[in-house]
Design a protein around this nucleic acid. Sequence first.
DNA 1: TGTTAGCACTCTTTTATCTTGAGTGCTAAT
DNA 2: ATTAGCACTCAAGATAAAAGAGTGCTAACA
Lengths: 344, 344
Amino acid sequence: MELDQRKLQILRAIIDEYILSASPVGSKSIRQSADLNWSSATIRNEMADLEALGYLAQPHTSAGRIPSDKAYRLYVNQMLSHAALSQEELKLLNGYYRNRIDGIESVLRSTAHVLSEITHYTAIVMMPDLATNRLRHFQLVPLTEGKALSVIVTDAGVARDSVIDIPPDMTPDELEALSRTITRRCYNCRMSTVGEKLIKEIGAELKSRGDFLSALLERLDESSQTGMNMVELAGARNMLRYPEYNDVNKAKTFLATVEQRDSIYRMMKKASNMEFTITIGRENEQEGLQDCSVVTATYRVNDMPLGTFGIIGPTRMDYNRVISVLQGVQQNLAYVLQSYLKED
Amino acid sequence: MELDQRKLQILRAIIDEYILSASPVGSKSIRQSADLNWSSATIRNEMADLEALGYLAQPHTSAGRIPSDKAYRLYVNQMLSHAALSQEELKLLNGYYRNRIDGIESVLRSTAHVLSEITHYTAIVMMPDLATNRLRHFQLVPLTEGKALSVIVTDAGVARDSVIDIPPDMTPDELEALSRTITRRCYNCRMSTVGEKLIKEIGAELKSRGDFLSALLERLDESSQTGMNMVELAGARNMLRYPEYNDVNKAKTFLATVEQRDSIYRMMKKASNMEFTITIGRENEQEGLQDCSVVTATYRVNDMPLGTFGIIGPTRMDYNRVISVLQGVQQNLAYVLQSYLKED
DNA sequence: TGTTAGCACTCTTTTATCTTGAGTGCTAAT
DNA sequence: ATTAGCACTCAAGATAAAAGAGTGCTAACA
């Protein structure tokens, strides 16, 4: 079911206009603003066709048309202009990253704020997934009887810690020895392979501590994954700027959805193996996001994907700009994060 | 300027009513609901007096009265009923903490969510201030040329890390040796005294590395303080429940204020040396919180204050309940956190 | 056959007007 | 000092009318 050139042009004009105005666009206004040379009657006919094909909807008779999810999908797939950011905007963006030296997670958290500020949408940044990172240090620090803190440090300059139960008769010296063994044996191993390696190499030694070892491995695994608390969310309030959220109840629902970290987390996790994703309206599985679009991108260092970040906005978001911004941030992140990382 | 018994009774009734209804209360309704035995005319006279004294305000003639900040202040100082939580609520609260074993920060972060859920206001929890904690482990992990990650672990089971510049000629062995020295010399020292101690004990040895040492000390100091990213905020959206935020613009302003972490951070920091604080309306320095009240409390372990947490709500918040909940959470936190801490 | 001008019709939005009702302040009586 | 009574005020709700934006359809035109 191909759309001819004219239909495409009209559809595009409608979407562009609607992204700007958020109110149904009529045949007349589109003719002027997009400089289309057909009469409004012709345009009206085409609009009726486009509606029949499911690209447009009418809130009520005698109102203009608004684009459907299907229309946005077409728009995103075929009509993006891929405009790069302006010099100014790039400068602004770079400026944010110039003096960032306080660690990867800190950079990423502020990235969320930067993103939300320059797009005026809601931004999400996942902390790095350490699976592809390399272990640099492992330490068990005794806390109280039966408990210790396990700390890992990777080559990406990220530390992760968690409390772990230890056998009550395990001495601090034993813990220290174990820490050194693990650090030595697994130095520079990818986090995803550390567990395996440990079982093979020291499983036998620690046979008597079987339970502890398996708890430890599990904990290592957990730490290297990006947990639920590792999602930075910023600018949720920005949604209140847009007329679609003038209704306090809608706003409440939206905020409830994004504050529900675990669902956002799952969503981002799912997007994490894609370089770039755009999910429009009802394409979102999340109940509360079905009037929203989500655009995600991957940040990488030395071509190693580390994590995912993205933007949530109303379905009529400015896709062109959002994509440009994400690409700009992607580049900046690659550059900044690189300074924490060594070549393979 | 003392208020007589009757005025107090009436004022209290008005406040109680207004907390419930959020709409101006009139002389008649107050008479019924609070079972006051004076005629509405008498009550009206008293209300006029109370208004003249600054305790009440009238949105417009022919509307009821609403309490002023001054009234809430009086209410909070003299009229709280100090009702404990019900058995049910206590049970619910305890339930949240029953299975929490994944570390102090995690407990605290979820505390923010629990608080916001059971009060239906906005909750803030500051991560622990480590100044009074004792050092358990210190580690410098080399990352790339000129950079290392510094990690501290304290007896409270908290790890903090940050990237630090190191002299380019410093070898991994040197870093490791330094880490051990610091851990050994300062083991079980309060974080607030570690810097001092280091200068005294190894300042001489490291004279050649003067710059590095001072950077290190600074970093230690920073890490032991609660930074701006160490504020967990939850339930901001709850404010949309209340009619005072039915106006989308007000809601936006509020959300902007609390998302501005650093100001919230400063506010909490200021409250951190008080066991309990209640700040009402314009008493708040924060521009955007002048229609809100903030109630904070300290969480402690073994009588050692660790940090601050609190509630932000509209000035007409249910002070009694908020205070009860904060006390309940305070106790639960003390109990749960204790399991991570050793006696002095 | 595709395009367009014209026009009647639809339905939301805006504006104006009226009504209702909760609540007050004041006065006069108790 | 207290209270019943009453005129008055003002926001909020209801109703009605007018305006305006946009459509679909028909008939004329190239």
